[in-house]
Nucleic acid binder design. Structure first.
Ligand code: MN
Ligand code: MN
Ligand code: ZN
Ligand code: ZN
Lengths: 157, 157
DNA sequence: TTATTTAGTGAAAACCATTTCCATTAATAG
DNA sequence: CTATTAATGGAAATGGTTTTCACTAAATAA
């Protein structure tokens, strides 16, 4: 029952209230699942995980909550080309590491990588600064994905 | 009538045949439009441009052709979060410049930028090399997008 | 050229992730 | 507690994309 644990941390409740949102049971549960999951979950994946324990939380609410969380910057909405949006927890108190993705165009496998990130981040920061200035564009975040064939798929060709 | 001009270049016909595809009128016309358009066109945008001159080319064929062109690496399929796929010509004989994108999360405006690209490309090449080795992943291309607020949208807040 | 093969096609229907609608519920302020 | 109104669930609608299938035409053989 995340009610106690999570409220206790105060983090989420504060964040929500601070932005004019109410922290409802559904939102709390969905956030809880996202924060504990590794993968890249679709709305339905999340619904499936939520439903057994909280059958009162509907799929519509999952979609709506994911929108809210995205706009708050608490989750990233990703597109790996398989026809449905995927979501991953952006960062919490304990902080999951920022990372980028390798996407197999054949089997849709996705690899998170955190190596090579430091140089990337540094370049990105500079680039962001330059772009912000030149285009008067307020950059909030970025998406970097490499597309190609995973080990398995390039073997079977 | 692209028939003459384009065939003349030989480029496309050769590319298609070399990959086991036939170069049909529909494909030729769609490719022609993509190669001459600046923006980020949706399947329907393309259909609208094709239809007046070639009413025999249906929307289904536009989708199918875009799939083929994507898989041949002749166009990039992009997602800017507005609920439909966008396509842009990858590179032709005359070579459009490779670029990345700034996407406004408020009004969906997309800015192509080609500055700062050189450093990015260099880093990307290194990163690709490292990732390929470490994950045994054959990288074919990459996607880099910055999300935030365009000048207009950050002003009206 | 003509005949044969088969990739490609258009139109309509199906698909299916996501959004909208609306009556109901429940979080918050006072 | 009561009043306010954000949030919700379920059903229906939406709409971009895919599938189906009978038909067409590009490549190839004869
Ligand atoms: Mn990831
Ligand atoms: Mn572009
Ligand atoms: Zn793969
Ligand atoms: Zn904007």
């Amino acid at each position: 029952m995340p009610r106690g644990e999570c409220r206790g941390q105060g983090w989420w409740h504060g964040k929500f209230r601070g932005c004019g949102y109410r922290l409802t049971l559904g939102r709390e549960v969905i956030l809880d699942i996202l924060s504990k999951s590794e993968g890249h979950l679709s709305a339905e994946d999340i619904y499936m995980k939520v439903h057994p324990k909280y059958p009162s939380v509907g799929l519509t609410t999952v979609y709506r909550t994911l929108d809210v969380l995205s706009s708050l910057g608490m989750v990233y909405k990703l597109d790996f080309g398989d026809g449905r949006a995927r979501y991953e927890f952006a960062e919490g108190p304990k902080g999951a590491h920022h990372h980028h993705h390798l996407v197999c165009t054949d089997c849709n496998k996705v690899i998170d990588y955190t190596d090579f990130i430091d140089d990337e981040i540094e370049l990105l920061n500079q680039t962001e600064k330059g772009l912000s200035k030149k285009y008067n564009f307020k950059i909030a975040n970025h998406l970097i994905q490499f597309y190609g064939l995973c080990e398995k798929c390039s073997a079977k060709k």
